[in-house]
Each structure stands twice: as C-alpha cells, then as structure tokens.
Amino acid sequence: MDHSTLSFLFHLLTLAAYVSALPATFLQDFRVTWADTHIKQLQGGAAIQLTLDQSSGCGFASKRQYLFGRVSMKIKLIPGDSAGTVAAFYMNSNTSGIRDELDFEFLGNRSGHPYTVQTNVYTHGKGDREQRVNLWFDPASDFHTYSILWNHYHVLFFVDEVPIRVFKSNQARGIAFPKSQPMGVYSTLWEADDWATRGGLEKIDWRKAPFHAFYKDFDIEGCPNPGPASCASNPNNWWEGPAFRQLSAIQARKYRWVRVNYMVYDYCTDKSRNPVTPPECLAGI
C-alpha cells in the first residue's frame, strides 16, 4: 500500500471521529426538550420555527454531547417589538455545580432599537463573564450565522464569521478553561422581561404575541461523547490546526472593529461588579 493510499485512509478515519456533514433534517441531530407544540418543522425538517406566547416558550437540544469542535446555526430572530424575549443558543455540560457553558443570548428590543447579543462563559461552575454587543444589522430581516469554535487554545464566538468574543486558554495562569467536560448544544426561546431589555425596564407586549424565531443549517463538527476516546486529543482534527489557534490578521481587525464600535457592556471593565479586574481579562486576546 503506497503512501498516498495510507494518507487517504487516515483522512477517512479522522473524518469518522466526528460529525462532519450538515444533517438533512433537524431531528437527525436534535430533539425537542420542552413544549413540542411550540416547535414546528419547516421545509421537510430542514428548518424549524420556535414560538413564544403567554402559555409557553420552547427549547431543543442535541442528541449527543461533544468535546471540542465547532457548532453553528443560521437564525432569524423575532421581528418588530421583541422586548423582554430571549432566544438562546448555547453549549452546556449539564453538570450541576461545576458546569461548563458557552452562551449566545439574543436580547429582544423595542422596535427601532438594535438587537443586543450577550455572550457568557462558564468554566468549572464559574460564570458572570457577560459581554454585550449591539448587532450591526437587523437580525430579524434575514438569517445570519452564529458559531462557537472550541479547541485547546480558545473559545471563539462568531457572527457571520466576524469574531465578537475570545476566551483564551490561560491555564498556566491558573485560569480555568473548559477542556474535559463534553457539552450538548441547546437553544431556547423564552420570556425574560425581568432583565433582558434595558435591565428589565422594558416588558413584553403580549399583544404582539405569538413571537417566532427561525432556525436552519444546523451544523455540529466535533468529537461526540460517547465516541472514540482519542478524538478530543487528536491534533489532526481540523479545528485544532494552526489556522485556528489564534485570530488571523483579518479576524483580529474585525474583532477590534466590533469591540470599538458595538460593545455596550464588558464585565472586565465593570468596576462595580469587579473592583479587581478578573485575571482572564488581563491576559488579552
């Protein structure tokens, strides 16, 4: 067997270690977790509609958990007056007390005001790392791609391939990093008008209900658990490659652009909550 054939076989084995293809339907990789009457399949299951009304919100989750990789979804958020609503897309280890979690939370708005996306990172049960960015487009007029890339070097949050959040692995400085607990992929649409819009000042206008958010192009590429034990530590997984170990020059410029022009809250600079700057904030990007 020649070298090229061996390389091809190794590549196939590497691909088999993780989910590498877009699922044909929502139910291929996901299950409804609550209020199945409020989740409607569209386009033969290729897309879904989530509904929030006064009776209930709803949620779904991946059928499997994953350790490292990338997850992404295309989402079209609630149009018009969505104040008090939250659509969330996140990863969670589902372990009480010491959970790891990576959050996108889309905070509804009063008509005419920008949508705010809040990100948060929990490591070994420690959270309270909120950052908020106003989106620079109308996320309710069309689908946009929201992604989380998670490898041994950092966690990156992307909006349409623009990085809006970086959480680096700084374990040498004693900063916890999610590295050992597999996480599932979740999404919910729910009422949170006690805090979501202007700190809870803006309440849901139930006269505008029902509220709808739409999802499609579900993509999970990662090491499934249970699965091959060697997958998570395999340096040949594409998300561990040199191109994904730090932001490229173009990504770094986009990241600075977002933070300078659209960041509206950063726990790192909130002296009322954190008189002493958290150590991960001093580590930079």
Rank of each mutant, 00 (worst) to 15 (best):
G84P: 05
T85C: 10
T85I: 01
A88T: 10
M91Q: 14
I98R: 11
R99V: 02
E101M: 02
D103G: 02
D103M: 01
L107R: 10
N109R: 15
N109S: 13
S111I: 10
G112M: 06
H113Y: 12
H113E: 14
H113A: 13
P114R: 09
P114G: 05
Y115C: 07
T116M: 02
T116A: 06
T116S: 09
V117T: 11
Q118T: 02
Q118D: 08
Q118C: 06
N120A: 02
V121A: 02
V121P: 01
V121C: 08
T123K: 10
H124C: 03
H124E: 13
G125L: 11
G127M: 01
D128A: 14
D128H: 14
D128N: 15
D128E: 14
R129H: 14
R129M: 05
E130N: 13
Q131A: 07
R132P: 01
V133K: 01
V133N: 09
N134I: 02
L135F: 06
W136F: 07
W136Q: 10
W136M: 05
W136R: 09
W136L: 13
P139I: 08
A140S: 15
A140C: 14
S141V: 14
D142E: 15
F143Y: 15
F143T: 08
T145A: 12
Y146H: 11
I148S: 05
L149R: 14
W150H: 14
N151D: 08
N151K: 11
Y153K: 15
H154G: 01
F157G: 00
F157V: 00
F157I: 00
F158I: 08
F158C: 00
E161P: 00
V162L: 04
P163F: 02
P163I: 03
I164W: 06
R165F: 00
V166F: 00
F167L: 01
F167Y: 15
K168R: 14
S169Q: 11
S169K: 09
S169N: 15
A172K: 14
R173K: 12
G174S: 06
A176T: 14
F177C: 03
F177W: 03
F177P: 03
P178R: 09
K179Y: 12
K179N: 12
K179F: 11
K179R: 13
P182T: 02
G184V: 06
V185S: 01
V185Y: 02
V185D: 01
Y186H: 12
Y186S: 01
